[in-house]
Design a protein around this nucleic acid. Structure first.
Lengths: 337, 337
DNA sequence: CAGTTTTGCGCAAACGATTGCGCGTCTAAT
DNA sequence: ATTAGACGCGCAATCGTTTGCGCAAAACTG
């Protein structure tokens, strides 16, 4: 602290003014016509005492913090962990740092995180929104470039990059039906959430007009929910359904544990298919057929979009049209149905 | 930006000076004997226009950033994701924000992250160290409170909170031997890393003097490594070993896939036991017996220790003795051996 | 040689907050 | 009535950078 070297220190040691030192060290020597001699002397001294600028002061002055804020609903969820990892890697590659916040699925915590981002002059924000209405995000988006990922709002002017949940669920349901399954139970997650609603739509649409009995139950992306619903569905009648479509890997695990408890074997007695990317699914017995979301692509497209917004902002251009993109997931066929 | 309200704005609107406004809004009204009237007028105006202080300016001036830096070797690894989650929750609860960096197991990236933390005046740092020597961490630890987690350096003055990898591996090996397994293959991770070395020590110590043939192979905490080593071990002779001890869940998965490829059933033909907390292990068939690390406790103790250091620093006390704690993991018995 | 341009650099004002010190006014004590 | 203390508040410096403007000396022009 006390001995921390700053521009003033270098200024003293070299005899040049703080201004000159600053200009040299921030690479503006040409622009301000600083002599070769000065440049040399200053850079030498800076290197000698290992000068590093105070980023807070720099940000305060320039209003550029080299930081973007990222808020997710649960970093301990492997899905968001992977997504965060991809995004942070992209940001880091572009010289940006990450302020990470975990909203824990709470709109209130999300609000606090977003405001904190504002108060720290982040240059951009990437958010997996939790709030049920877009107002806060839109307000902040007017001030700071902001891109939604994984979840989005309908009819919003905000940019978003999500996976096409309708298409994903459609693919899964169609696959089951084509395979000959005729009584399908879909166990869903949080009903109000956009991805979930889209999955329900896709699921139903795929089975529309086909001779398949189907049902959608459940209310959370959790193991417990999967377990509860599977238990409820099969305990009275072991052949109530011939297949389960789990809307997340956690739900799947719950369902499988329920099946086993009832003496039913997943894959053999009841076909199962799942959503999510978890590599563990390959090592289940049998390996689980699933809809995988292209997380890497989502992250990359989102960061790309964000930087476009930031670029425009820096140049004073008015914001480009929002990027609103749904990326198709892929069906990974294994042996569970 | 342009319309952002600051102390000056409130000062104008209320007629009080910036100083007074600042004192009122930062709760120092009493200390500076500001009149009730002024307090009321200022707080009202601040509330009316939703004033929020610029955290950069605040940090610059006070040298308190309400931020701690967290660096992990891979946020996409569920182990570190969970650990990060616990830590961030603890920090958030204490009113602190998190600057997260991912070193991707690279000492160079780790160095950059740590320096960046310094340059942003973080008040504390929690690090899962990647570097092979402690110098950098120790240098920074002299300036900023710093606690290591999960990995530590030998003979360091730094605080650390890790799990007792020796004890964990000892428990696992003893359990296998007690169960009657006599030819045990341990598939390790990165040999040089401290947790790995401790696990090897514990593993060997537990089998010392017992009539058990054992071997340690492998060199990475990856699926591929597990697969490669298991394949190499069993392909010549299907009964070369009767049990596998995987040093991580990823290694386990690789090993299992190799076994299956060779027509061997994990649990029945070859006992398996693993390290790691992944809940998926419960849903394998059979569920996998494993050594679980008390991540929650590690995170909590680490944050506690960090805040003690920070507290001392604030009060100008000299640093308290380093907390150097190894927390015992627990053996979670399932059916795979 | 006077006048213009270029060169090289420093002054000082920002960015938005915090805080030591001191100044005026009002009350109370002598 | 005078003085001391309490009271309420503002001035201005500070944290470490950046940057518009301008000034002096050197170089060039005619």
């Amino acid at each position: 602290m006390i001995g921390k070297i700053n521009l003033a220190a270098i200024s003293e040691r070299t005899g040049y003014s703080v201004s000159t030192v600053s200009r040299v060290l921030s690479g503006k020597a040409e622009k301000y016509r600083i002599s070769k001699a000065a440049v040399k002397r200053v850079t030498a001294e800076a290197a000698r005492c290992n000068y590093r600028p105070n980023l807070l002061a720099q940000s305060l002055r320039t209003r550029q913090s080299q930081t973007v804020g990222l808020v997710v609903p649960g970093i301990d969820n492997p899905f968001f962990a992977t997504l965060s990892s991809v995004i942070m890697a992209q940001l880091s590659q572009r010289g940006y740092h990450t302020l990470l916040a975990d909203s824990r699925e709470s709109a209130e915590e999300e609000r606090m995180a977003l405001q904190m981002f504002q108060d720290r002059n982040v240059e951009g924000i990437i958010s997996v929104p939790v709030a049920s209405s877009p107002e806060l995000h839109e307000d902040i988006g007017r001030e700071i470039p902001l891109v939604l990922i994984d979840r989005y709002f309908e009819k919003t002017s905000l940019s978003y990059v999500c996976t096409d949940n309708y298409a994903g669920a459609y693919m899964a349901a169609k696959y089951l039906a084509d395979k000959g399954y005729r009584r399908i139970l879909a166990i869903q997650g949080v009903p109000a959430s956009m991805p979930n609603r889209e999955r329900v739509r896709g699921f139903l649409a795929a089975l529309e007009g086909r001779d398949v009995y189907c049902s959608v139950r459940g209310d959370a992306f959790s193991v417990e929910n999967g377990q509860r619903e599977a238990l409820a569905a099969f305990s009275g009648n072991p052949s109530a359904y011939d297949a389960i479509f789990a809307f997340s890997a956690t739900i799947l695990l719950g369902a499988i544990s329920a099946l086993r408890k009832l003496g039913l074997a997943e894959g053999r007695d009841v076909g199962v298919i799942s959503y999510d990317n978890n590599g563990f699914l390959d090592f289940m017995n049998p390996p689980v057929t699933r809809v995988e979301q292209p997380l890497k692509e989502v992250g990359e497209v989102a960061v790309g979009a964000l930087f476009n917004l930031m670029e425009a902002r820096r140049c004073g251009d008015d914001a480009p049209a929002p990027v609103q993109q749904l990326i198709r997931p892929t069906l990974v066929v294994r042996e569970s149905c």
